[in-house]
Design a binder for these strands. Structure first.
Lengths: 159, 159
DNA sequence: CGTAACTAGATTGTGCGCAATTGAATTGCC
DNA sequence: GGCAATTCAATTGCGCACAATCTAGTTACG
């Protein structure tokens, strides 16, 4: 089963040589796919004035508005060092508001402006275009999504 | 088949609502998995003095030495704006040499130093550790790799 | 109370990632 | 040979991504 796929010049390594190559290939594949996604989204998001990570933040806020920075970070796996400047740029663009919470002054609540909410309609078109681009069946996409989520969980557990 | 999974508050959108959510989830998943990979590799690569992208470049050179910048960029999907400073850091670390090709003075050939070649042995341990971390069967990993490669190709064709 | 431990967010510094520009070298075409 | 188009690399500018550090606000405990 794993025979017939060995490289020509395997020298002095054990039978795990193939597995090692596979791991590397998997990490190449994920790395490449992530950037390909970013590149594919980029021209589509440009008309909206959003970068890809900014788009992810907006999607999060469209799902649930008025979230503290921390909550956004937890959902996207980003820390304040990334989000603070990003959110300031979104505020600059007039898409969100940043307000300290009266209840707990440590929190900065991020809420959508009307402009930010309205952008959602335009974004639907973008996502449809992506659907065309990845152009695979739902089952395939769902399976891939689940595999990636599982992989990520496994890696996060291990730290 | 796609019924029973619709969100509660679907308003005035067509039946593609679910697919749109799926696309977004897939892009979240890839985005997250890529960063999880980077985070997982980071502590393992630290003893080698490499970042994750630097590691990818080294893997490429271990596969084939003495490559021009362009060739490395093609394999990893990176351009000279990313690679030029990265390669200079690798040179600074004493892992690679950067030499103009005599044949074609436009090319800068990147070659491994002895230190760079030797590092491969230490890296084998790292990759084994990753194998433990992702900890899934070969078939599973291979299927995931292939799905990602297919996805990436589809996206690259569409630009 | 009052101080120690904790939490949220901002800031700083390093390193990608990519578009756009520049400059040098090579190739192609007459 | 001579000039234009092309190719390769480097540089610049902007935006993430994250570790480490800092400040301010909150909670816990004696």
């Amino acid at each position: 089963m794993k025979s017939g796929l060995m490289k020509e010049k395997v020298q002095a390594t054990d039978s795990r040589e193939f597995e090692i190559k596979l791991d590397t290939q998997l990490c190449f594949a994920i790395y490449g796919a992530a950037h390909a996604f970013t590149r594919t989204y980029k021209p589509l998001l440009e008309p909206l004035g959003l970068t890809y990570p900014q788009y992810l933040v907006m999607v999060t806020l469209w799902e649930e508005d008025d979230l503290p920075v921390k909550a956004i970070g937890d959902r996207l796996g980003l820390d304040s060092g990334t989000l603070s400047p990003l959110l300031k740029r979104l505020e600059q663009s007039g898409l969100v508001l940043r307000k300290r919470d009266r209840e707990d002054e440590r929190l900065v609540k991020i809420s959508l402006t009307e402009k930010g909410s309205d952008l959602r309609q335009k974004a639907v078109g973008v996502t449809k275009a992506i659907g065309q681009t990845i152009g695979c069946g739902m089952e395939e996409a769902a399976a891939l999504r689940d595999a990636l989520i599982t992989l990520r969980k496994r890696m996060n557990e291990t730290d």
